[in-house]
């Protein structure tokens, strides 16, 4: 049984690099995409076991990517962990859209995220999808 593959989709290069180091130390194989379009392509070509997706990205944002992934039967089973920069404090209608999007994703965490929490959620999602 090989290593689990995780695709990170986020335009913040520092965040992505740091997350990669942390997840690799937990024996995951990490692949990176810097925007939504690249993310969708890599899902199709690399078939990751889990996708960590940032909401706030230029051009195609996380909502759109998530919706596209869940609408595609080939990828809809891959667990998606959404990273949200906007917390609960802003409930204007744009963010009730985000609340709705949270229903589509398999889990979500607000940034900044503690590394232990990130690892725990990833492990949780793998545990759930196995069963």
């Amino acid at each position: 049984m090989g290593k689990k593959k995780i695709l990170l989709v986020d335009d913040d290069a520092d965040f992505v690099e740091a997350t990669k180091v942390i997840l690799e130390s937990k024996s995951y194989d990490i692949s990176i995409a810097h925007d939504g379009q690249e993310g969708l392509e890599k899902v199709r070509t690399e078939r990751p076991d889990l996708i960590i997706l940032d909401v706030m990205m230029p051009n195609m944002d996380g909502y759109e990517v998530c919706a596209k992934l869940k609408a595609d039967p080939a990828c809809s089973r891959i667990p998606v962990l959404l990273l949200t920069a906007v917390g609960n404090a802003i409930p204007s209608s744009k963010y009730t859209k985000e609340m709705g999007m949270r229903m589509e994703a398999d889990d979500y965490i607000p940034k900044p995220v503690e590394p232990e929490e990130l690892v725990e959620r990833v492990e949780n999602l793998f545990r759930i999808s196995k069963g």
Binding site: A18, K111, E114
Partner: peptide, 24 residues
């Protein structure tokens, strides 16, 4: 709400990466 969202994002992004970097 766009301004608040932007400010939120601009402030929290560096905090996100530096938090992970210190943990590393």
């Amino acid at each position: 709400s766009n301004f608040l969202a932007m400010v939120s994002h601009q402030l929290k992004s560096p905090l996100s990466s530096t938090l992970l970097q210190t943990s590393i």
